[in-house]
């Protein structure tokens, strides 16, 4: 699944994870830490939606 930041359009791809922030490939969006922020614009998980 992919999740897109509603503010800036950055995409979190569960398959890829986000190794730059220590998030392993395969990490489900729901398992991202609660304080996960969009790396481009800084908004929280509540402002992502399924792509």
């Amino acid at each position: 699944m992919k999740y897109v930041c509603e503010v800036c359009g950055w995409v979190y791809d569960e398959e890829q994870g986000y190794p730059e922030a220590g998030i392993a490939p395969g990490t489900k969006f729901e398992d991202l830490p609660e304080d996960f922020e969009c790396p481009l614009c800084g908004v929280g998980k509540d402002q992502f939606s399924e792509e």
Binding site: C8, E37, V43
Partner: peptide, 10 residues
């Protein structure tokens, strides 16, 4: 207080 996107990310 972090205020991302009000109205810039920083």
């Amino acid at each position: 207080i972090a205020a991302p996107m009000v109205h810039w990310p920083e």
